[in-house]
């Protein structure tokens, strides 16, 4: 379980997270939604410890995590843009990440799923954007971490890879992992989310299932429901 209490993060004068109180139960797919600049990525990065909050606490399974690093052993994170050391080869990168995490899960299944075999000996600087993203996915799912955090995972993926990604996400869910996704793609949200959190201007605007959101906004389509929320907030 992830418990976030009164989380505040400011960048200079800009308050990005404004006293967030939030909790995610273990298991299931939790999606963080919100317009650009609503604080999705900052929230995720706070949980990961990449961003250091100004105030508030974050507990994972009852343990405070801010300023710690060992807890990340239990997290797999997929950043929005994949950028790797330019002079390493793909297989060296895999080796390195495994080496850094001290775990050895066989990544071959993932590699074949995303058809990366032919790229293994290429330097990372020579990969296309889509291929880089596939490498990014492989790195994320190489480990058996109970918490998986994905920041805009669909960026730059071709349809085939997207299907594979969804398949893995579902598979992980079935294995009982907790999955946290931030995304813009409503179809994906509707398809896989168990719970959505809607962030607006650094505050939680809504937390619940997609059906609950639709019901609350009296819309039958998630996209419209969201648009409705945004319109209301403008008033």
């Amino acid at each position: 379980m992830i418990e976030i209490n009164n989380l505040v993060k400011r960048f200079g004068k800009l308050t990005v997270l404004d006293g967030i109180n939030l909790s995610f139960l273990n298991g299931g797919i939790h999606t963080v939604l919100g317009p650009n600049g609503s604080g999705k990525t900052t929230l995720i990065k706070s949980i990961l410890g990449i961003v250091v909050p100004n105030k508030g606490t974050i507990k994972i399974n009852g343990k405070e995590v801010i300023g710690k690093w060992q807890y990340r052993d239990d997290i797999s994170y997929m950043p929005q843009i994949a950028h790797f050391p330019q002079n390493l080869k793909v297989k060296e990168l895999f080796k390195m990440i495994k080496d850094l995490r001290n775990t050895s899960i066989n990544e071959n299944e993932l590699i074949s799923l995303f058809q990366l075999e032919s790229h293994l000996d290429k330097k990372l600087s020579n990969l296309s954007g889509g291929t880089s993203q596939k490498v990014n996915i492989v790195i994320t799912f190489m480990f058996d971490a109970p918490l998986i955090i994905l920041d805009e995972p669909t960026t730059g993926l071709d349809p085939v890879a997207l299907i594979s990604l969804k398949k893995i996400i579902k598979q992980k869910k079935d294995e009982g992992k907790t999955i946290l996704i931030s995304t813009h793609i409503m179809s994906l949200v509707e398809e896989i989310s168990d719970e959505i959190v809607f962030l607006l201007d650094g505050k939680i605007y809504f937390q619940g299932t997609t059906d609950e959101l639709k019901k609350q906004t009296e819309q039958d389509n998630l996209e419209n429901a969201i648009a409705n929320v945004l319109r209301e907030s403008d008033d």
Binding site: I50, W69, R72, I81, A82, F84, I149
Partner: peptide, 15 residues
Amino acid sequence: SKEFTELLLAQPIKR
């Protein structure tokens, strides 16, 4: 190497 640093920051490694 900023983005790579971010990737590393998400790993269980001391900052």
